[in-house]
Simulated assay, not measured.
Amino acid sequence: MALRPVRLHQALSRTVHTITLPDPDGPAVWAVETRTTEDHRARLYRDGQRTSTAEMPATFTVPGGRIEVDAGLYGVTRVHLVTPDGRERRLAPAPGTLEHRRAALTRDRPRTSRAIAVTAVVILLVNLVLATPVWLEMVTSIPEVADRVGTFTSPVLLPGWLLGTLMVAGVAAAVERAVTWRHHRIVDAETLWTSL
């Protein structure tokens, strides 16, 4: 099966990353495709033709090493060539992907890119502060947990429209962090709550 270009309507659900590697018959372009909303599989292509498919986390053997692939709820978390000596090289996002568009924004408009990145962190931190008490109330409302540790009532009471807005903003911020390959244990802990 042939690899198709990534269309605009697929930007949030499909990624393709590529790398050119030497081969006895000449350089070959290897591509890894993931479709996070359809299945949890990675597909490997050589010069546009599918060669294999694997469940993620996936490892594909290629000339000069192996390609390791994994994805989370908000996008690809790993797509690297690992050489036999342990060196790693991330594959490049293919044109049309959200990652490629975001990298172009960073290159062409660095100030706008930084402003978007900072805004995403602020949104995730605000959501983390607001979500923690709500999450604790949810967990302690489970009878088995309440019997052991008691219940907790969240002091945070937000109107439904604000909760919805924060959830949408949190998802957008999480996608922003994923496509720019940024991750921090505390900042990105909030992405767990937006997935509930």
Rank of each mutant, 00 (worst) to 15 (best):
D108Y: 12
L81N: 07
L12G: 01
E88D: 12
A104D: 15
A189F: 13
D188I: 01
R177I: 00
I142M: 14
T153M: 00
I19Q: 04
S141A: 11
E99G: 04
E68C: 07
L130F: 11
V76C: 09
V179M: 02
V171I: 13
V171F: 08
S13L: 06
L192Q: 08
P143G: 13
G160L: 06
M56N: 02
R87F: 07
H40L: 05
V69D: 01
G26T: 11
L91A: 08
L125F: 12
H17I: 03
D85R: 06
H17C: 06
I186E: 04
T53K: 08
V121R: 13
E55H: 03
F60R: 04
H17Q: 14
M138N: 07
P57M: 03
T140I: 08
D25R: 03
D147L: 07
I142S: 11
T165D: 04
R4Q: 12
E190Y: 14
Y74Q: 02
G164C: 04
E68Q: 12
A11R: 13
L128R: 03
G160Y: 07
L125N: 12
D188N: 09
A11I: 10
R41P: 01
A2T: 10
H100D: 12
V16R: 02
L91K: 00
M56L: 10
V139E: 11
D25I: 00
I142W: 14
T36Y: 03
E68T: 09
Q10L: 08
T37Y: 05
T61V: 04
E144T: 07
T140V: 08
G26Q: 13
L12F: 10
R109V: 01
P84M: 07
P159V: 04
R182K: 15
T15G: 14
V126W: 12
N127L: 10
L158H: 08
L163C: 02
V156D: 01
V118Q: 00
S154P: 04
L105Q: 03
D108H: 15
E55K: 03
P155L: 06
V121F: 06
L73H: 05
P84N: 08
G86I: 11
E190S: 15
A103Y: 06
V32I: 14
A174S: 15
A58D: 03
P95Y: 11
T97H: 05
S141P: 03
R4D: 11
A178V: 00
L21E: 09
T83F: 08
Q10S: 10
V79L: 02
P57D: 07
R50Y: 02
L158D: 08
S195L: 12
R177A: 06
W181R: 14
T180V: 06
E68H: 09
D39L: 04
R111P: 01
L12Q: 01
P63C: 12
W30G: 03
L128T: 05
Q49N: 06
E88S: 14
V32L: 04
R101C: 05
S154D: 07
Q49L: 07
I142Y: 14
P27W: 08
A174Q: 00
V6S: 02
V79Y: 02
W181F: 15
T180Q: 14
I186P: 04
